[in-house]
Design a protein around this nucleic acid. Structure first.
Lengths: 145, 145
DNA sequence: AACAATTACATTGTGCGCAATATAATTGCA
DNA sequence: TGCAATTATATTGCGCACAATGTAATTGTT
């Protein structure tokens, strides 16, 4: 009997479940704004400073490649959230910017983080500590990629 | 400027990246055994006690529904990892059991958890503490689903 | 200037994950 | 017993995630 192979002992399985669990918590809140979770992540990046960003920039922040982002951003354009424009200074690059509708949604979305924090039941101090732990782990794992 | 909406302040984003990052760490190790990560999770469940389990049982453990498991298990059958059999006592139920090949793979896989733990750079104590923290968070979030 | 290498993005194909719906078997209850 | 409700699984459709490949624009080198 190999205790290490026991599924409940595996860190990865907890992260797998927790990630799904949190995504499901977001779903109803995001639905009100008409967003999926990955779309929400893109919007967070664009809301940051409301400046146009290239697909490359967005990919670097979210750690997603063009195979994921190209169709995702096309869907978001069809939903009227963003506009895609070929850069004139570099025709290879595509600039992504928010539409007026995309900017408006921020007002609905800005209450989401607080709502979610409440659902986690974490205090601000626990949150900060957990974020540090996860950052350290993220740093370690990414060294081996 | 809404600090809460800043993507780098969001717990969910860390979990999202960490989950992807860890899955990518597994990928090359699992490839040697011819498994994807979700397939590995199913195998972990079946390796536990090498007894046939229903799709429902597997779904309860992995928190996956038939929409995910039905095609996943069909692919695994095609790969020769498992066998699917309609239960005779209850024709609605499908029993999943390991093939000889499926059992053999355990010998390759049993070294994976230790390898991965090393890549995380965590001590056993840190691991245990983190697992507890994640369990608590998982428990809290699942209360609201 | 010519051309090889690199870069930014798009496309194709595969495998999840999940909502919604369908179907057949079983159970529960009047 | 008959029939409505429940249960176990399957199917469809959509949206990621990512590997592999393709393409056009740009850069670097000689």
């Amino acid at each position: 009997m190999n205790e290490q192979l026991h599924i409940e002992n595996q860190l990865c399985f907890r992260l797998y479940k927790l990630n799904k669990s949190i995504t499901r918590l977001y779903a109803p809140l995001l639905k009100e704004a008409g967003l999926t979770y990955p779309q929400y992540l893109v919007m967070l990046v664009l809301w940051q400073d409301e400046q146009a960003k290239s697909i490359k920039d967005i990919g670097a922040i979210l750690e997603l490649d063009s195979g994921t982002l190209s169709p995702l951003l096309k869907r978001m354009e069809k939903l009227g959230l963003i506009k895609r424009t070929r850069s004139k200074t570099d025709e290879r690059s595509v600039a992504i910017e928010l539409t007026a509708h995309g900017k408006e949604i921020k007002n609905k979305a800005k209450f989401i983080p607080a709502k979610l924090l409440m659902l986690t039941g974490l205090t601000k101090i626990e949150l900060k500590q957990l974020q540090q732990d996860l950052d350290e782990l993220l740093h370690n794992t990414q060294q081996h990629l």
